[in-house]
Amino acid sequence: MTRSALMLLAFVAVTFTACERRAGGGTAQTMSVSQPSAQQLDQIPLGAPPGQPVSIAASIANPYEGQAQAAVEGKSLFGAMNCVYCHASGGGGLIGPPLNGDAWRYGGTPAEIFKSIHDGRPKGMPAWGGRLPSSEIWKLVAYIETLDNGVPAGPSVRDEAPPGSPAGPLAMKPATVDGLVVARKSDADDGRP
């Protein structure tokens, strides 16, 4: 195991501890759940053929469905695993594609999003299976699901701002959840084939 992988594991451990601490060990903590099997997930094709009914993916629910705390922990992971620097705050997209709209390259059902994170995708999305436990990937999915039709991308561009003045009305503050600040860079322009 490489040194960086060890550092990563150590960091992940710290992150989980922090999540649990924030959850206070009370009712807000995520409950242990039964996850979809690997065999089920293997049956999900990479995109449905045109005109075909939605694949088996639609019938697989996020095991954390209905647990708000899972999305909060997913958001924490979204920052800690550096997802935010590619997909931007609110999932608006930057280096990577947006996660907050209706357009999905590889499908937008919870199980398809899980597969994209777990397996990685050809245009640079790393495979997190083996780096993160499946339970944590499902929490990331839970967070991403909250972005659907939700937080718009930007805009952060202001036409005029006298030096020292606060941000104009169009400038968004970084999104916060339980005091956790998620970074946001300039707005994305996906425009990619």
């Binding site: 960086s4 550096n82 620097y85 705050s89 780096r131 202001r158 970074a183």
Partner: peptide, 26 residues
């Protein structure tokens, strides 16, 4: 605004959260 980051190979080693605006009044 800066945020501390961890090094994960193949992901951004970044941490800068910034908003841009034109420098002058015009």
């Amino acid at each position: 605004t800066d945020h501390k980051v961890s090094y994960i190979p193949g992901t951004p080693y970044d941490g800068m959260d910034l908003k841009t605006h034109a420098g002058g009044h015009a």
